[in-house]
Measured scan of single mutants.
Amino acid sequence: TFTSIVTTNPDFGGFEFYVEAGQQFDDSAYEEAYGVSVPSAVVEEMNAKAAQLKDGEWLNVSHE
């Protein structure tokens, strides 16, 4: 299960995956970082959410 939350205070020191406002979700980078295949429906969902981000916001993507 993939989830996401919007934050204005990303923790770059941890093992977190963020999408910056104005960027798209990079499923290849996510797969490389976590060894998890990302279904195309999830990629579309995360890109739709990322498109709604305002300046200074980040989308924190995770999975269980």
Rank of each mutant, 00 (worst) to 15 (best):
F25H: 02
F12A: 06
V36F: 06
L59G: 01
Y30A: 02
D26N: 12
P39W: 00
F12L: 10
I5G: 09
Y18R: 00
D27G: 15
E16D: 12
D55W: 05
D55M: 10
A51F: 00
Y30M: 04
L53M: 06
S37C: 14
F12D: 05
L59H: 02
K54S: 10
P39H: 01
S4Y: 09
E20L: 01
P39A: 04
N9Q: 12
V42D: 04
F17Y: 09
E57F: 03
V43A: 09
A51S: 12
S62I: 14
N47M: 06
E16C: 14
F2L: 09
W58R: 03
S40H: 13
E57K: 00
L53Q: 00
L59T: 00
T7H: 03
A33K: 15
E16M: 10
S37D: 07
S37A: 13
E44D: 13
F2R: 07
V6D: 03
F25E: 00
N47D: 05
V43W: 06
K54W: 03
G13K: 10
Q23M: 12
G22W: 04
V43G: 03
D11W: 10
A21I: 04
F17E: 03
F25W: 04
T7V: 14
K54N: 10
T3C: 15
F2I: 11
V61T: 03
A50G: 04
E64N: 13
A48L: 13
P10M: 04
T8G: 06
S62W: 15
E44K: 12
F12G: 06
F2E: 09
M46K: 01
F25P: 01
M46H: 01
D26T: 05
A41G: 11
E32Y: 10
A41V: 11
G13I: 07
P10S: 02
G22K: 06
E64Y: 06
T8Q: 10
V43Q: 05
E16Q: 12
E16Y: 14
E44T: 12
Y30N: 01
Q52I: 09
Y30T: 02
G35P: 01
K54Y: 04
V42F: 07
A29R: 10
E57M: 01
G14N: 09
H63K: 02
F15M: 14
Q23R: 09
A48N: 11
G35C: 09
E16T: 08
E44M: 10
H63T: 05
F17W: 10
T1E: 14
K49A: 08
Y18H: 05
Q23V: 06
K54I: 09
V38P: 06
T1S: 15
N60T: 12
T3P: 08
E20I: 05
V36K: 06
D26Y: 05
P10V: 04
S4H: 07
S37W: 10
E44P: 03
V36H: 05
T7G: 03
A51N: 07
G56I: 02
Y34L: 08
Q24N: 12
P39E: 04
A50M: 04
F2V: 10
D26H: 05
D27S: 15
S62M: 13
Q23K: 13
G35V: 03
E31F: 15
A51T: 07
T8L: 09
K49W: 00
V19L: 07
L59D: 02
A41Y: 14
N47K: 07
G14Q: 09
E45N: 06
E64F: 05
L53W: 00
E57T: 01
Q24W: 12
D27C: 14
Y30V: 03
A50Q: 00
S37F: 11
T1R: 15
F17R: 01
A50H: 01
P10C: 08
A33V: 11
F2T: 08
V19W: 02
V42A: 05
Y18A: 02
Q52F: 09
V19D: 02
Q23L: 08
W58D: 02
G13F: 12
L53G: 03
Q24D: 09
V38E: 02
E31C: 11
E31Y: 14
Q23Y: 11
F12C: 09
A51Q: 10
G56L: 03
Q52N: 12
I5F: 13
E31G: 09
G13P: 05
S40V: 13
T7S: 06
S40Y: 09
Q23E: 11
D11E: 10
A33S: 09
Q52K: 12
V6R: 00
L53K: 01
E20H: 08
L53C: 03
D55C: 09
G13L: 11
E32N: 11
D55P: 14
A29Y: 07
G22T: 03
L53E: 02
F2D: 07
G13N: 13
I5R: 06
D11G: 07
V6K: 00
E45D: 08
A41T: 11
E45G: 05
P10E: 01
Y18G: 01
A21F: 13
F15Q: 13
M46A: 03
V61W: 00
G22D: 02
T3L: 12
M46N: 02
A50C: 05
E64G: 13
T1N: 15
A21V: 08
S40N: 11
V19K: 00
V19T: 05
A21H: 11
L59V: 02
E57C: 03
I5W: 08
V43H: 04
G14M: 07
E45K: 06
Y34N: 06
Q23N: 10
A41S: 13
E31T: 14
F2C: 09
K54P: 02
Y30P: 01
T3W: 10
V6C: 08
E20V: 06
T3A: 08
